[in-house]
Nucleic acid binder design. Structure first.
Lengths: 250, 250
DNA sequence: CCGTTGAATTCCTATATATGAATGAATTAA
DNA sequence: TTAATTCATTCATATATAGGAATTCAACGG
């Protein structure tokens, strides 16, 4: 029938407003989201009925109401994990002046749950909700490092690692060796393995017995030059959270 | 098939997190939202795939990511109408110390687009996205006042006015007389017609040739006692917006 | 004022989806 | 440790929905 499910299309409509940042007509939504007009009409009217959208302007232009924002704000304010980790993340961002990321494994990907961007104009830039591979990101390696060798092998077989950049480690043995190095030094790294010229470090963090990865990422030239200082700050943050009883890392 | 469409159910799931303010299991979502487990499973996994939800805790508890909030924030920040009206609304709220509301007609209802609540502990309380009837709210009367008599009659025939409170005006002639009084004095009122013991005043505001209603609402005992002062503040706000070229009221 | 154009809306049916029932996984109790 | 229970997941099919086509509506230019 359709190329996407109707719930997905509903998300696509909302995301289109996020992208375009202006009121859109039914036709525009239909075109941009690749949804047939009649189907788009139905979806938009469902959202209108529930007050997630309203009609503005004479040309029947449509725009989201505050409803979505208020919902997101309430939900965000009640996220126990983010609440508990945010102060330490802010401190780490300020100490390193690089982008700080909280991530978690979701099946065969890492999802970014929180991104605090560096104050520098040249910085690692990402958004909460972005997903990245397991094998080519430092948070991913952090997660993989907690698995048994056989489990890592199985994961990599089910989801063969892509050569994302020239530096990406795709071989099983080389990856295991890299994980060993990470375990030994207490943090995991990527050197341009997912994005060229980006160096990132990550440590495991455990909240409520659930595993997360905390990372610092930035342009290689800056991060490599301060690797000692940054890794120290990252480990300090991990230690800090452990002291607060938040993290019993693994 | 189902009692609600799948996009509606997706909204119901997100709203459930807003209501419960905590991670929920699939079973809980399924129960609370009255969605069969298998269907709920599908919807939740769609949201997981798109990073709107993530799995937290060991019991497969689920919670929304920041994604929704960030989307809402971007969209809200780009709402031209709210941006232009908000300063005047804040000023009006501070001047009256009562709840200030921006509303718009959506078919046979008024949708609240923005609500700035009074600082008083006893206050008119509402949320953006709430919808109210046309005939028993002051913003509704404001909108009706701009229609021709015959159009008002048709609207009321298609959506017969309910007796919401003992004070609700349901008769056509009495309502038209009330609209006339409103036109004469420059603002429209309700006296416990939609909620007992609530008095509200509204004026029309036009942005980009599109009609909105701006209202002040509060407990009758406070508002009735300061009717003169409050109506003056409301008209001042309207005048103010007109000066800025925002409002060419009707 | 009317004709033209493009968008919004409605309608019908082929088709994707919802869900009851069965299975599998995991947690708790005994 | 095993049994019991509860929850998550899969699957086949009855059923609601997506979308092409037709229609209505509205804006704009002549």
């Amino acid at each position: 029938m359709s190329e996407a499910t109707s719930p997905e299309r509903m998300l696509a409509i909302l995301e289109m407003f996020e992208k375009e940042r202006r009121p859109l007509s039914l036709k525009e939504l239909s075109d941009y989201c690749r949804i047939p007009p009649s189907t788009c009409h139905n979806l938009v009217h469902t959202l209108l009925r529930h007050s997630y959208l309203y009609q503005t302007g004479q040309r029947k232009d449509i725009y989201p109401t505050r409803r979505l924002y208020d919902m997101g704000a309430t939900i965000l304010a009640n996220d126990q994990i983010l609440q508990r980790l945010l102060p330490a993340m802010e401190q780490l961002r300020d100490a390193t002046r690089e982008t700080v990321i909280l991530g978690k494994r979701q099946k065969d990907r890492i999802v970014y749950l929180e991104v605090l961007e560096s104050p520098e104009v040249i910085r690692y830039s990402a958004r909460a909700g972005d997903t990245k591979p397991l094998h080519s990101t430092c948070i991913g390696k952090t997660i993989l490092s907690t698995l048994k060798t056989e489990e890592v092998r199985r994961v990599l077989e089910e989801h063969p690692p892509l050569q994302v950049t020239p530096n990406t480690i795709t071989g099983f043995d080389r990856l295991m060796a890299d994980l060993d190095r990470g375990r030994a030094r207490g943090y995991f790294t990527t050197h341009g393995e997912n994005v060229a010229d980006v160096t990132a470090l990550a440590v495991p963090i455990s909240v409520n017995n659930e595993l997360f990865g905390l990372a610092v990422a930035g342009p290689s030239h800056r991060v490599d030059a301060s690797l000692e200082r940054i890794s120290r700050a990252l480990k300090d943050a991990q230690e800090n959270l452990l002291q607060q009883g938040i993290s019993g890392s693994g």
